[in-house]
Write a protein that binds this DNA or RNA. Structure first.
Lengths: 341, 341
DNA sequence: TTGAAAGCGCTAACAT
DNA sequence: ATGTTAGCGCTTTCAA
């Protein structure tokens, strides 16, 4: 079987008896081509099975119609639905998505930034606002547009599509305090290289502090995001000499792990200790009792990030960052502390 | 601030006083360049901040070093960790990943196949072996290598990195029968456009049938993958005049939904009815009681798929498909039926 | 081991 | 509305 040569613009041009420029136009700016011509070209394209060579296109237009996303991990549901929304929004604009994962590691993220840029990404989606100067400088030097999601800063020249982690963590903490809890503990994500984890800790600390002397944050345990680790942290907290009446978790995976462990150890939630989550993923409603948690607008963030990035890629200078509200979803894992009941 | 022109191979060549060909070689086939020359070139490259223009590279080499993956959805954990493994394996080979989602819809998948190929993907990862002839022909016509994951066929010219859904479903069904269950129901994924769902149903049917007259598959309810739908299907099944003693679910999300619903309705699992899952994702251990389920080798599949695809992209004709075993993970949602206890 | 040079297929500025 | 044409930056023979 002979290898069939792939048709080029030139072939189409010859067959349709027009110039290559007209073919190019009829593909990229159809409205600039006469209807009759366009239809004739369409027919020829279909007959020849022509598809543009992406290399030629990128080379000539200096645009790849591709953007990259670097997320900490795809292995849990946390980023998945936001990423999906991001991709779908891009697809509408004919832009495709390159993905890479950093494993919550700044060095690895830097590698992936370079890799995606080397692949010609026109823009980048990054998670969180904490990265080494090296990465920031690199992005600036290469002048590539990027938007940051999962966090928000108002006083920054960077562009965000996210929410205020400090405020969100403070609000769930205040909610917990309002219910009467005074002895609070936290199971947080590892704060290293992770400003979301860091800020959630900060938010809890601030809310407790500003509540006054009566309330205290007994302990903050940091753990990598997994149910197992959440369970271990729970054990550690409950076995301490002064156990908390509520445990605020930096994420639903950790919280779910804590709830499951409580069950195994026959500790009643929320009677003996309350637990709260963060993110509102599937897991939150799977555990028993279901998690009271902070709902994060995954889908909206993904969509907004895509829109912003698309604008920036097509030349808009400094689009306004967008901040989303979070919402406390009340379920059964949180109640007033026992001594009040 | 003046826009700095991005340096090209030519610039590097001039600065290093060699030809562009040598620079190109020192990047792509370093061993073919004298050590001294290579080092000199390296220095210049760093000084100028040179990075290759991807368009030029693709155009000249006719290779994009990019592969695409089209998965039904990123919005649940099912495909996430396999995709992550796939990407990481690719990254080792300097290949980047384009992703798109099809929403379990063949037509949409076809669109995405075209989109990713138009973006120059050198190869494709597809989920499942069921797609319209249109898609198959298109892939064949364009002669693009692709591997199929999440299922397996031995008598096919396509390349698979997956497992046998029929066998896996049969094995959990036999396990259930061995425990003494005779009245079985199933909550399956929607079979349309989804051969994994279809084959899992088939596997259950076959195992029940070959067990003989005593056992019967009362009913198969199809539902889109969500906990809510799983719960609704559970209700429907339990409210029927002849409720089952065990419900085999086509996926952990559906099973988790069923377990949660049982809790809400105060139906004891596994005393009143047993439930089994499929996939072994996080959710399986979050619900109470934890799901007895079929473990699918997500990570291994992702890795194997990447290796196969990489081979095919670099010219290997027909690498051997790889089949993985699944494993039944026993937890607490499955027990012998009440009348045997 | 290195260099010269011919494209790769497309877009976009300009001309008509 | 359409055509002409000059590159875009790189890889890859072929020759030296």
């Amino acid at each position: 079987m002979k290898k069939i040569e792939r048709p080029t613009l030139e072939d189409v041009a010859v067959a349709a008896k027009v110039s290559t420029a007209t073919i190019s136009r009829s593909i990229n700016e159809p409205e600039k081509v006469a209807d009759a011509t366009r239809e004739r070209i369409q027919t020829v394209i279909r007959k020849l099975g022509y598809t543009p060579n992406i290399g030629g296109r990128i080379l000539a237009s200096n645009r790849s119609n591709t953007v990259g996303a670097i997320i900490p991990t795809m292995a849990n549901a946390m980023f998945a639905s936001g990423l999906q929304a991001f991709q779908q929004e891009l697809a509408k604009a004919g832009v495709t998505l390159l993905v890479a994962s950093s494993g919550y590691n700044s060095e690895e993220e830097f590698q992936q930034i370079q890799a995606l840029m080397a692949q010609g990404a026109d823009g980048l989606l990054l998670i969180g606002d904490q990265r080494p100067q090296e990465s920031i400088d690199f992005l600036a030097m290469r002048n590539i547009p990027y938007v940051i999601s999962w966090c928000f800063k108002s006083d920054s020249d960077r562009v965000f599509a996210g929410f205020d982690n400090i405020a969100a963590a403070s609000s769930i903490t205040r909610h917990v305090l309002d219910l009467g809890h005074r002895r609070i503990a936290m199971i947080a994500g590892k704060a290293k290289d992770n400003d979301r984890a860091k800020n959630r800790i900060l938010g809890v600390k601030r809310a407790v502090k500003s509540f006054g002397k009566n309330a205290q944050l007994l302990k903050v345990v940091e753990a990598d995001y997994s149910m197992e680790n959440g369970g271990d942290a729970f054990t550690q907290l409950m076995d301490s000499t002064q156990p908390p009446t509520v445990i605020i978790c930096g994420n639903d995976v950790l919280a779910a792990g804590a709830v499951v462990r409580a069950q195994q150890r026959d500790i009643n939630i929320p009677e003996e200790v309350s637990i709260t989550g963060f993110d509102d993923i599937n897991l939150a409603t799977a555990v028993y009792p279901a998690l009271t948690t902070v709902r994060v607008p995954h889908i909206d963030m993904g969509r907004a990030a895509a829109k912003l990035l698309l604008e920036m890629v097509s030349g808009k200078r400094n689009p306004a960052s967008v901040a989303f509200d979070t919402e406390i979803i009340s379920r059964q894992s949180l109640a007033a502390p026992a001594f009040l009941l």
